[in-house]
Design a protein around this nucleic acid. Structure first.
Lengths: 244, 244
DNA sequence: CGCGAGCTTGATGCCGATCAATGCATGTGG
DNA sequence: CCACATGCATTGATCGGCATCAAGCTCGCG
């Protein structure tokens, strides 16, 4: 092999400045100068096969990860083996923020399809964000946004009924997919009914039944993991308490 | 009144460096130098009467607040009027982190007793944390800790039954009170059954019934808002799935 | 083809919601 | 000081939504 070929193919693309996710990811709002420095920081990628774990709860925390391609779930579990999916992450979203709190990850991150993440060494990110106000501010916004998202999930888990939960889930998913240039009305679920159920505080049978009901009611077409949204407004009405 | 008396009594105490909460609050782990600068930053206090709101959802975000004395709840609400308590905050805990995400608060913060908070102007905190690594790191830890806490609440809401939720709630509360030098076994609840229920995803009647059951079972003595924990280990066993 | 993981659907039961009445503490005005 | 109102808590009776248990179905894959 020649020297030039020994360079990993990813090396050419590991650059936030030319990444097509830069408007969704950490670099949002950064200027040319900041971006160049960020490119130096985010120098490596990591491939995670479907079913594999990016990090486990308890692992020492070193880096944040930005999803480049693929799809992840994060889940926490209690001592007695209870398990809760805390989120699903897609391209441009950050993984690992939980680890900052005590230098260990406190949840598992599992790839639900073959995925690729950008590795962001955390201490270097702190260094760089001391230098660049915009980066610092953007990073804080991302953490804050995660907190706000979590509060929304609490609202869902604490006060919504099964149909409302699933409707809210689907609308959230399609909205994020749309922001990434995918269809807002047709999607393929990367997670099982059980994983959806865990996220929504429901059993997989309830998730399945609710999908069927949505189909009967004309909101969706459901064929296993293929979902087509027929009546988005109807789902939206469900989430707001139109039926109460 | 003499001049000396006209000086607000608080003026002497508005100093993180001499605050008895500094080991629980933002200043954790800061050196002398950092602390002095933080003192300049956190120059004002604010008194919030019981029942009053420190900030509303939608208010422009300017500052974080550190609880100095008293007790708060934060709650989010959806368009259709659904309401969810997302947390209870006591001395040394930060309020307002949700506001960073889009320069507006996204929840209400309500004082559950007469309280006092330290006002931390956010943009100045950002400035200062660009200068002091330790402050920056501590701030990030606090945000991350909030995310981890939220994930714990999701686990609770998504997978625990009523008794487990209330037991977990009480243990968490006493643990935090103990860290502040209060008794771990005797406490006065600052919130109503309804607020507890909202936080735990239960109705107030269920909360009340569960308190009564805990009393029958010999875990607690309950007299309205006065709680005495008789069998902490028993509660702990409940939280872990000892009964499953 | 046959196996297994995941999904669907049905029957039943239980936990917690709901509805309703009473009790208890605090405060207020006559 | 009592009468009454008000807010919060307790307790009971009933109901319903979701969990649970169980059986069959679909589809991808070795």
């Amino acid at each position: 092999m020649t020297d030039s070929l020994r360079v990993k193919p990813e090396a050419f693309k590991v650059a936030c400045s030319s990444c097509n996710l830069r408007e969704l990811c950490l670099p949002v709002g950064l200027g040319r100068n900041d971006l160049d420095r960020l490119d130096d920081l985010v120098a490596t990628r990591k491939t995670v096969a479907r079913g594999d774990t990016l990090f486990h709860s308890g692992d020492p925390f070193q880096s944040l990860y930005a999803v480049r391609t693929g799809f992840f779930k994060t889940c926490v579990s209690s001592e007695d083996g209870r398990d809760q999916v805390t989120g699903f992450q897609m391209a441009g979203e950050l993984l690992g923020l939980d680890g900052i709190s005590n230098d260990r990850h406190s949840c598992d991150a599992v790839a639900l399809e073959d995925s690729q993440v950008c590795v962001i060494p955390y201490s270097q990110l702190e260094d760089l964000s001391r230098e660049f106000t915009d980066l610092q501010h953007q990073f804080h916004k991302i953490m804050s946004r995660e907190i706000v998202r979590d509060h929304g999930v609490m609202l869902l888990l604490g006060s919504m009924r099964a149909e409302e939960r699933l409707a809210a889930f689907l609308l959230n998913l399609t909205q994020r997919l749309e922001a990434r240039g995918f269809s807002a009305s047709s999607l393929i679920l990367r997670m099982t009914r059980e994983e959806i159920g865990s996220y929504l505080g429901l059993k997989l049978e309830t998730v399945s039944r609710t999908f069927s009901k949505f189909q009967e009611d004309g909101f969706l077409e459901v064929k296993q993991r293929h979902i087509r949204i027929v009546d988005q407004a109807g789902l939206q009405q469900l989430v707001n308490g139109a039926n109460c």
